[in-house]
Write a protein that binds this DNA or RNA. Sequence first.
RNA 1: GCCGGGGUGCCGGAACGGCCACGGGUGCGGCUGCAGACCGCAUUUAUGUGGGUUCAAAUCCCACCCCCGGCUCCA
Length: 459
Amino acid sequence: MLLSDTLSRNYIKLDSETDKEVKIYVCGVTVYDYSHVGHARVFIVFDVLRRLLQKKGFKVTYVQNFTDIDDKIINRARELGTSYKDVSERFIKAYLEDSDALNLLRADLYPRATEYIQDMEDFIKGLINKGHAYISSDGVYYDVNSFKDYGKLSKIKKEELIAGARIEANENKKYPLDFALWKKYEEEPYFETVFGKGRPGWHIECSTMIRKNLGETINIHGGGEDLIFPHHENEIAQSEGLSGKPLAKIWMHVGLVKFGKEKMSKSLHNVVYIKDFLKKYGPNTLRVFSLSSHYRAQLEFNEEKIKEAIESWKSIEDAEYSLMQTFNISSDVDVADIIREIDLAFKDLENDLDTPSALNHMLRASKTINKLWASLKISAEVSGKLKAFQDLFDVFGFKLTETSSKDREMIQELIIKRNKLRQDKDFKNADAIRKTLLDYKVKLIDTPLGTFWRKVEVL
RNA sequence: GCCGGGGUGCCGGAACGGCCACGGGUGCGGCUGCAGACCGCAUUUAUGUGGGUUCAAAUCCCACCCCCGGCUCCA
């Protein structure tokens, strides 16, 4: 299994012999609003990675944080006339609902910044002792010049960054690039520490929670590419400054989702929320869309691409049904071509999670399966030979739309009724039933061997 | 300026040294009571420009042109 590493700009091999346990930490969301499809892409990518690693026999520990104290949350609380806790609780709940709807595996742990204040304090004390941090009148700052590798992740040179003139001047800092570990605040909300009342800087929570929950060096650290600088750069400075050891063996960054030509961002008011997307299309469509280009590449959100994702999903969905709805016949089909495509798809995934190519191969396998089904050649035996398709389907994290048992009964009854009408050549009423079921996204397929129904995600 | 990603058919977009990717749209036709799924054909002998390497290049090398994102809170 190869993965590309932002830090070394190289592929790094994950070996199930030497890396038996894979510790993954992914930067989660700041909970002040609903999550959008850009967030979804990141978490879908890591979801597929987890599923693949587990399938390959790795033991995976996956941690994803919630930033639950932050100026944006406080501002939002003020807007809504409530407490920051109320806001963060509400959006953590919303995040988990989206996550489940997307069929994302739950993390092993979702640490929250506010639960680690004491650990942050200890961490910062450690940095001060090591000469990497200093106390100033308005807080505690990280001394960037004390860490010689500063800039190694983002390939940024300190002088050039300052020359870029984007850095705010602040008299309380020794050096413009120094960043806050602790910010003093007298007004609520604040936390009591030896540094006085205040709130943590943005980056310290991740360093602290990784150290505490996963140790000094983890296997994979990930997030959106917009976190490379300054967030991950600063995490490296903090964690490696304290431990003297590499923070992560592999840094994975997922490309941003753009809305049309622009970045999707709340400040540009062009976000598409996950919950809205799901209402209109569905979770599998969003997965296909998110994985339809390589995770490191930026992905443009537009109608064409959504439409394409829908069509792709329909093929895969049909193939999945085709293997479930077998015909009671004896059929001997050579499935070697299909198996080959599935093998190629798995190989693609192991090659730096090349999902677009893997999806391509899966699509080809799906088309062939659908063809076989259309010519009534899928017996239980043939389907059994194609178990690998199911494995691939699961690694991608796809899931067919569920139907309640009550609905199943109703559908069966309607099908029987309709087939009676068809026998009597009352096609008008028969078609009315087809139409009714279609409103519930239930598609009927008549074959010489009977009528089948499929609940679909999108019509 | 610095860091990164790109320029492929009507459109979206793969492939990163060799065999028409794939999909969408549109049009015509087949199958079907209808529909879906499926099948056939057309659009499709496409790879920013100029050199080079090679039996073979969209793919490697050199130069140039043009787009996009990030460098500020952000996934």
